[in-house]
Every structure is written in C-alpha cells, then in structure tokens.
C-alpha cells in the first residue's frame, strides 16, 4: 500500500512550477502515441486508491470512464486522491493532482490548468457531460470554495 492520504506531505514546488514541469516533460514526446504511452504509465503509477473509498458518494458521474475522488483538509491545505478505471484518465488525474493536491483553497481557485492545453490534451477537460475528469476538477474547485468560505470545518 502507498502512503495514506492523511500522511502525504505538501508539495515543495509551486502550482505554476508544477504546471511548467509537466509541460517540460511532454516537450520531447513527439507524437501522440508517445504522449499517451507516458500518460498511461503515469496512470499505472498513481498511488493505489483505497477500495473502501471506491463508493458511489465519491464517484464523478461522467458518461464514459468512472472517476472517484476524496479529499482531506489539514493545515489550511486540501489534499486529494483519485482514481479511474480508465488508464488514460488515471494518468491525467496524476497530472491534475500534481498541480492541485496539497494546496491552499485560494491558490486552487486562482489556478486554471493551462498545462492541459499546452500538452495538446484539452479535449479531456472539456466540460461536456461525458467527462468525469472535468467533473473532478469542478469538484476540486467546489471543495476549495467551501473551505475558503469556511462552510466546511
């Protein structure tokens, strides 16, 4: 098993740096096959998601791939863990969490995932009904609004 969500350390690099390093890591992947192979590999390396949390309440209801997300709020920061039954979506989750997990709610709300466009995968975040990943980002932002407004203790 990996490190439980409650024990994961906050990232040391800024959100902007995290986005930049993702874009850098894609720079030398020339064709789309290599990009997807890299994403699939990231998905496979995503920390295992606890089976007990793979429940309806944590599920984003997209039309295509299942996405499950849970959060933990500590020391003024929001930590997320998530998974998907799709390897590609799991890889993209890994990228999103690298940017968004372990951040202050105000930082999260102020940051758009520009990297996804820069690496040429914007269609995966288009907010249409079939997209569990877009719903996950929306949930991350909604959670952040909630904590920022102090609605959730």
């Amino acid at each position: 098993m990996g490190v439980p969500l409650q024990a994961r350390p906050a990232p040391t690099e800024t959100m902007a740096d995290a986005q930049r390093s993702i874009v850098d890591s894609f720079r030398y992947l020339e064709d789309w096959t290599e990009r997807y192979q890299y994403i699939i590999e990231l998905g496979r390396r995503l920390p295992p998601f606890p089976e007990t949390k793979r429940i309806e309440a944590n599920r984003m209801h997209g039309c295509q791939a299942g996405v499950w997300l849970v959060s933990d709020y500590r020391d003024g920061k929001l930590f997320f863990e998530a998974t998907s039954d799709s390897a590609i979506v799991a890889g993209l989750i890994s990228l999103l969490l690298k940017v968004y997990s372990g951040r202050r709610p105000d930082e999260i709300l102020a940051t758009t995932p520009a990297f996804i466009e820069e690496i040429g995968l914007a269609e995966h975040l288009s907010p249409h009904r079939a997209n569990g990943l877009a719903l996950m980002l929306a949930r991350i932002q909604a959670d952040s609004s909630g904590y920022q407004a102090g609605e959730v203790a």
């Binding site: 699939i40 295509q64 791939a65 799709s86 590609i88």
Partner: peptide, 22 residues
C-alpha cells in the same frame, strides 16, 4: 487490456469514431 474510454481515445487518433460508454 484497455477500458472502452481508452479504446475510443486511441482509435480516435487514427481517425476512427466509435462510441465508448454505457
């Protein structure tokens, strides 16, 4: 080997449009 969403995503790059989902 692959979830239907991933099948649909990869074959799309080959210009092939299939439906993936429920």
């Amino acid at each position: 080997q692959a979830h239907p969403h991933d099948i649909g995503t990869i074959v799309d790059r080959a210009g092939v449009a299939v439906r993936a989902g429920h």
